[in-house]
């Protein structure tokens, strides 16, 4: 299929991008890597009037170290994320989850920011951003603002981005201390979206789990934190039984959908198993 016709704008700075979005009319769509957008447009499930392509906004690409956080440009591709030394050092969970996204070619074009702004509940990176307490820097006609990940994902394919706003970069706090991480993804075939996935970061201290952060993929219209499990793990013994026990509450507060791959109750079961596995691995057990 061929997309419906649209106007095409290709800004080279964030400022130009914001302006282009403002001038793009009623139905403007921002394109990052386009790896979800172009197929949807080819199927004519989306037919925007204007496409603002961020592909040439150089300042939105790359990773920099800002002391206690890494700042990842929204237009940094998945392939760049996977091979970035700063991410490998300070945000390994991001790299681990990104490696599971789609396939080699898609990762060459798809971007970190695009995946977050698309907010597909089956996408892998929103849960990671949530688990790591990332902050999303957004530019709009009124200037820039920062939205915590916990407030960014509003609903199915819906974020806190206001009309006219562009996601510019993502601040990912470095994990200080003895952290282990794991992204546990469950799907039926290799290049598929997650049926359920669990992003876990676990800090160990003196044989105990001092802190656990757990993000859940595809357990509701938005990514979620497994808060009950996190609480149960806080201060728990770093032992398989304790982890298994805590993982049993991983489905609390979730509202997964039913589709071809899984009905809701099965997802609720899966998330417990995957949480146990992710935390166990992250805790080095």
């Amino acid at each position: 299929m061929i997309p419906a016709p649209f106007e095409y704008v290709r800004p080279t700075t964030v400022e130009e991008a914001v302006q282009a979005v403002a001038e793009g009319g009623e139905d403007v769509k921002i394109m990052a890597g386009g790896q979800s957008l172009i197929p949807v447009m080819r199927l004519r499930l989306a037919a925007p009037e204007t496409i603002v392509d961020l592909g040439r906004v150089a300042e939105m690409r790359g990773v920099r170290d800002e002391g206690d956080a890494l700042v990842i440009g929204a237009m940094t591709t998945h392939a760049e994320v996977i091979t970035d030394p700063l991410i490998a050092q300070h945000a390994k969970l991001v790299a681990e989850a990104t490696e599971t996204v789609a396939d080699r070619q898609t990762r060459r074009r798809g971007t970190f920011g695009g995946a977050l702004a698309h907010a597909d509940p089956a996408g892998d990176l929103p849960a990671v951003a949530l688990a790591l307490d990332a902050e999303l820097v957004v530019a709009g006609p009124g200037g820039r603002r920062t939205v915590p990940a916990s407030e960014f994902f509003v609903d199915y394919l819906t974020t806190a981005l206001e009309e006219g706003e562009v996601l510019v970069e993502i601040r990912v706090p470095k994990l200080a201390g003895d952290w282990g991480v794991r992204y546990e993804k469950f799907n039926r075939v290799a290049q598929a979206w997650s049926i359920v996935a669990v992003a876990a970061a676990v800090r160990r201290e003196n044989g105990h789990i001092a802190e656990a952060r757990i993000g859940l993929t595809n357990m509701g219209p938005t990514p979620l934190r497994a808060s009950a499990t996190e609480a149960a793990l806080s201060g728990a013994a770093a032992a398989p039984d304790a982890v298994a026990s805590a993982a049993r509450s991983a489905a609390e507060g979730t509202s997964p959908s039913s589709d071809l791959n899984a009905q809701a109750d099965y997802r609720e079961h899966l998330v417990q198993v995957l949480t146990r596995r992710a935390v166990t691995a992250a805790a080095g057990l």
Partner: peptide, 19 residues
């Protein structure tokens, strides 16, 4: 439809010619 775009494999059905 895989081709190399500036040396990297991409799916040319998911890239616009203008890109």
């Amino acid at each position: 439809c895989t081709v190399h775009l500036d040396g990297q494999a991409v799916k040319s059905c998911t890239v616009l010619a203008v890109q």
